[in-house]
Amino acid sequence: MFQDKKAGIIKTASWGSYFLITLFAPEIARESRPGQFLMIRVSDSLNPLLRRPLSIHNRSGQEVEIFFQVAGEGTKLLAQKNAGDFLDILGPCGQGFSLKPEFKDQEIFCVGGGRGLAPLYFLARELQAAGARPVIFYGGQTLSDLPLKKRLEEAGWETHCSTDDGSSGFRGLVTRLVEKELTRRKPYYLFACGPEAMMASLAKICQTAVLPAEFSLESIMGCGLGACWGCARKIKKNGEIKYLRICQDGPVFPAEEIIWPGD
């Protein structure tokens, strides 16, 4: 865990409301694992006050990337940063996705909804490096919600896209696309990150298919270190439901342990 007060922005890219920032942060890059996140100070002022938790999208040598969508005041400020600016970042935070030795030679589904693709790129790269075969499912409302489609295809991974309006790939929800694919083949494991409704639905699909899965959750956070308990969420561990910290006990949890609103 490191606080880098002056992580230099090497480059930025944007597609509509989606942004990619590449940062020089050697210590954090060295320790990062897929599914972990950074706590990022988006402004020197006291408004907004809290850091923003953002998934580590990629690591390359001494660099880390973050991929995000403008969703509020904090991400709006972050989106205005340019190459040459510095960011105060803390990380890597949280527990990442499990990377099990038995994934070798197995097919692993990685399902991302919109900005939820953020942690899955790093994950797919590590899966591939470990000899597994990542299969990507990438869903959005419309084509412009799939800015990383080309990048995924260039990485050489089997990639399935879906859009609500059919402007790219399968017309309909990405969960429906996964469900369809599951009638044809069964992967060894599934990882996902995306909107709550997507993950709640995917949890049921995985349960029916008896497919082990892990999901990465999002929350407002105070510290990102497990100290404040501000990001608590109901999780079922060993048959007992209790509030766990998304920042420290997660952000990745086994799908069957997550309690969904309305459950």
Binding site: N47, P48, I220, C231, A232, R233, Y243
Partner: peptide, 8 residues
């Protein structure tokens, strides 16, 4: 939850 809310 939610357990946190930011204000200026």
């Amino acid at each position: 939850p939610p357990r946190l809310a930011e204000t200026p």
